[in-house]
Design a protein around this nucleic acid. Sequence first.
DNA 1: GCCATATAGTTAGTGTCGCTAACTAAGTGA
DNA 2: TCACTTAGTTAGCGACACTAACTATATGGC
Lengths: 167, 167
Amino acid sequence: MTNASPTSAPTLTDEALTDEALTDEAVTEMAGRLRFSVARMARLLRQQDQSGFGPTLNAALSTVAGHGPLTLGELAAREQVAPPTITKVVEKLVANGLVARTPDAHDRRVARVAITTKGERQLQTYRTRRTAWLVGRLHELDHDELVRLLAAVDVLEAIIAVPEEHE
Amino acid sequence: MTNASPTSAPTLTDEALTDEALTDEAVTEMAGRLRFSVARMARLLRQQDQSGFGPTLNAALSTVAGHGPLTLGELAAREQVAPPTITKVVEKLVANGLVARTPDAHDRRVARVAITTKGERQLQTYRTRRTAWLVGRLHELDHDELVRLLAAVDVLEAIIAVPEEHE
DNA sequence: GCCATATAGTTAGTGTCGCTAACTAAGTGA
DNA sequence: TCACTTAGTTAGCGACACTAACTATATGGC
């Protein structure tokens, strides 16, 4: 597997890398492949997750950890899920003591969630474990493949980024 | 900890591209980011899917289309899904007339599924529509980003590939 | 021929994740 | 005060995926 022959579309890839224009057709085909890969990989990741806390809970916890106390609405927006979903997510996190929920003093409709010490500990503990499977897969790649993937991670992040609110 | 936190890490990327070794640490961090991106993107894709046939049904249909008639077991293996899951999937596909199910003549335990004309038509019709959202996102990227992403799609496909059976 | 075992697929039951619609509770403003 | 808006919840649904246990069929030894 040292060689660079792309599995499905050698011609397309070569052309695209050297040639200036990516045709609409090329972009569409790429989208199809990306879609497929992402869907499958998401399932594989979920299958590997032994922790009992699925990717959703984890992502939410991690967001709360990274972006300070958030209202439920803010969290929902960041996670790009509907409000009822966040209610359930927070319920579970609270039930497990990973986040604390406090009502706003001035506006009693809003509630804020902040990570707890236990939540931080858990995040630390599982951060490695959770990606172990994927790390294993990555180790099977050669250096060139790893570099290509790394170069693309930024792009993936850009694609999924929440559209900026101009406040 | 000489350098800044590599959240969207230009530094890390530069190093990796020029430097020979990707440290274990770098690979682990990359895995974490990839995991996150993939999970979220999978959800976004599902949200965008108006077709009523989720990614799973679609993937299965596409596999049946591409790899001729398959037994349910073979299909489950290719889709990397447990047998009961495939039963349900095939049920739905059959109910919608997208695949045909025929019992094996010699071994009455096994059943084979093959794509129907209607299934092929539907695959054609929705192939574009299904990726429209993603294509839109991709069009917002600049050329360099597109190229980087394209270069990585092969790698993603390698990661999710079914481990080869030496038949 | 007959039983033990293996294989293919199904049924039953469970769990996660996510949605929409409809609701409660609380703040805002004419 | 009454209409409107906003934050979050409840209820009910559906897709997707699993494990455990089952049915039906095949196969191999004796």
